[in-house]
Amino acid sequence: MKKLMSLVAVMLFTVGVFAQKVLVSDPAHSRIQFSVIHLTINDITGNFDKANLTINTDNKNFANSKIMFEVDPASINTHVEARDNHLKSADFFDVATYPKMVFTSTSIKRLKKNYYEANGNLLMHGVTKPVKVTLIYRGSTVNQMNKKTTYGYQVYASLKRSDFEIGGKFPEAVISNMVRIKGDFELTEQ
């Protein structure tokens, strides 16, 4: 009986392992962008050139998957070098002290076909807060260059910079407190 139970346990574990897939982002085709309102009249946009998304997918039920993305704030790029250097300073991201931002999902809920709400914790600027992101599955295709299946995902979120103690010297009349985030990722199986 013990041998039968052990065999069943191994089979269940094996089935569970094969139902999981680890997808990792392709850095050349993945990016996180942000937008803030400057002087209450104009959107200023930028992106982080180094951002990784990993999804531990549950093939049977995506809501059981785990999402993690990591951003290097020193890779900030607004196409204005002086502004980028200021954003890297202690006035904003303080990249010397806080070299990464990390989001880890705690739950995923299906909203409608290919749209999901992921709740999780975001560590940014030394502060961890719960945030909610929208995740959109854009489909998959076989990349003709490497013959691997490539998956497309988008991530949307809004957050308050004040929640993470970023740019506290700059009032909303100069830089909006609300920051809009959009991430575009191509992923392949690890």
Rank of each mutant, 00 (worst) to 15 (best):
E81Q: 08
L187E: 05
H125M: 11
V80F: 07
E117W: 09
F62T: 05
F93L: 13
K129V: 00
V131M: 13
S162Q: 07
N47R: 11
E186I: 05
R138M: 13
H79F: 15
D58S: 10
I55K: 02
G16E: 01
N146L: 11
L122K: 08
Y98A: 08
D43C: 02
L53S: 04
Q154N: 15
F185G: 09
N85T: 10
Q190Y: 03
P171T: 08
A118L: 06
A51S: 15
H125G: 07
L87E: 07
G183C: 02
F69A: 08
G152M: 02
D72R: 07
E70Q: 15
Q20A: 10
M101K: 09
I166H: 00
T14C: 14
E189I: 03
K100T: 05
R110W: 03
P99S: 01
L53P: 03
D84H: 05
S176F: 08
N52M: 09
K169W: 02
F164L: 01
N61P: 04
L122M: 12
T128Q: 07
G152L: 02
N177C: 01
S30G: 00
P73T: 03
T54A: 06
I37K: 14
I55Y: 03
T128S: 10
N146T: 10
K2N: 14
N143F: 05
M101N: 05
Y116I: 02
L87W: 04
L123Q: 08
L53F: 04
G168P: 00
Y153C: 02
A173S: 14
Q20F: 07
T149R: 14
M68L: 04
A82D: 08
D94W: 00
I32V: 15
L53H: 03
T149N: 08
N56Y: 15
T150Q: 14
I55N: 03
Q190S: 12
T14R: 02
A90P: 02
N114S: 15
